[in-house]
Amino acid sequence: MAIDKATVAKIAHLARLEVPEEQQEHLAKELSGILGWVEQLGEVNTDAVEPLRSVMPITQDWRADEVTDGNRREDVLANAPAQQDGYFVVPKVVE
């Protein structure tokens, strides 16, 4: 699958990544190269094969529904790019 510049812009937006226009052409070429190469998997017959989602057959345990952590507001906020009065400060979300 060859990827064009417009597709790069679309994927970049889906991934919320700013990709300057002057880099889009080059990236389109690189991504096309990678995708063209992985398409070799088309040679493998997988008709009767179930997709593998978990590599080790580990049964997941239940645990008691108990609070084990919390009341750590200072810790949670410690790395915030912006904070005020014990809250994260974020750009306006609702117009």
Partner: peptide, 13 residues
């Protein structure tokens, strides 16, 4: 792409 790769992954296992 993705489901195909998961199937080949099972074949590798």
């Amino acid at each position: 792409y993705y489901v195909k790769a998961q199937k080949v992954r099972r074949i590798l296992v």
